[in-house]
């Protein structure tokens, strides 16, 4: 289903996390919020439910382990922090303590992609590859700040683990109008319809993809933008349909290493289902440690910014 979207309004995804958790804490008395010293936006929950708020300090492994222990006992723990440290330092806890017993622990965090200018210690750029490889894990990457609240609400009834990836989350573009599309974990969103080529993306680059589609529309090119915000389980049927309806022309754009993230998920579906492609390009982070710079500058430098995306689509359309 096509969705309408409005550009412009900026909202902090972190503040959405804060208010949503405070709201859910009321309806779910077994909801716990845990953080390794990254709790500045969790103040509302902490003040309302201090006994269900745990800040372990600088100790990501313990944070996830404690969450698993709480979940073993019937609680719904949400671990909120910075993804480079949660997805890597606490990887074994996530895999062995959370995914192995299939516990409903939610890991939500910021700094997914080349965002925040902290350098390579502070960019989570391999996290989706790591998380997608874990049995039982559901993996999401969210670009629209309002959607974060919706995903958290839906996650309350999930029986297994969930990973939610955000960018910096301080000031994000509202991409979708409330209620104009069904947000459902496991189902992609056709953010903009089109039939010349499909641009699959997720997270921060959704808004870039929409800008690119706008620019190319002025040229008479019809770009379908698909927000595959759930990377696992991937929406196979939507991929199959898009490949079919846009002449087998596919571009994947993501703020993640170009091999191992969404592009690889899409390529797997293409191979497994024997889909016929006319052209395929992947835009993402190459195998380099990216260095410092603003988000947009880094995307340009590493070949997956706005201009590079326009060029890739032109190539795929045979007009490049």
């Amino acid at each position: 289903m096509p969705v309408t979207f409005t550009f412009g309004e900026m909202l902090s995804a972190r503040s959405v996390i804060g208010t949503t958790l405070a709201e859910l804490g009321e309806s779910h008395d077994n909801l716990w919020v845990l953080t390794p010293d990254i709790g500045a936006t969790l103040v509302e929950f902490r003040e309302k439910y201090p006994e269900r708020f745990v800040d372990v300090g600088l100790a990501e492994q313990v944070c996830v382990g404690v969450a698993a222990g709480l979940a073993y006992d019937g609680n719904i723990p949400v671990v909120s922090g910075m993804l480079p440290f949660l997805s890597m330092r606490a990887l074994e806890q996530i895999r062995t303590d959370v995914c192995y017993p299939n516990l409903p622990v939610k890991i939500i965090g910021t700094h997914g992609g080349l965002v925040g200018n902290g350098g390579s210690t502070h960019y989570a750029v391999e996290d989706l590859a790591l998380m997608c490889s874990l049995t039982n894990m559901t993996v999401t990457s969210i670009g629209d700040p309002m959607m974060v609240g919706e995903i958290l609400r839906q996650s309350m009834s999930m029986s297994g683990p969930l990973y939610i990836r955000l960018a910096v989350g301080k000031s994000d573009k509202v991409i979708y109008e409330a209620g104009q599309h069904d947000v459902e974990i496991g189902k992609g969103i056709v953010a903009r319809d089109g039939d010349d080529v499909t641009l699959f993306t997720h997270g921060t680059t959704v808004s870039q993809a929409l800008d690119v589609a706008d620019e190319l529309a002025a040229d008479g090119k019809s770009v379908r933008v698909v927000d595959l915000f759930t990377l696992k389980p991937i929406d196979e049927e939507l991929i199959v349909r898009c490949v079919d309806e846009t002449g087998g022309r596919v571009v994947v754009l993501e703020d993640h290493v170009a091999y191992g993230g969404l592009a690889s998920r899409v390529a797997d579906v293409v191979a497994d289902r024997g889909l016929k492609l006319t052209a395929f390009e992947r835009l993402g982070i190459p195998q380099v440690y990216a260095g410092f710079g603003d988000d947009e500058e880094l995307r340009d430098k590493h070949g997956y910014g706005h201009k590079a995306t326009v060029e890739a689509i032109r190539r795929v359309l045979g007009t490049g």
């Binding site: 600088l58 480079p84 440290f85 330092r89 200018n117 902290g118 350098g119 390579s120 210690t121 502070h122 440690y289 260095g291 410092f292 710079g293 603003d294 500058e297 880094l298 430098k301």
Partner: peptide
């Protein structure tokens, strides 16, 4: 400081800034 291609970033990078002993920023 902090600009594109600068060696001086928020966290030290040994490769970009020789003289710095180790690339750090992730605590512990």
């Amino acid at each position: 400081y902090g600009q594109l291609d600068s060696a001086y970033g928020m966290h030290p990078c040994k490769v970009q800034l020789p003289g710095v002993e180790c690339s750090t920023g992730s605590l512990g």
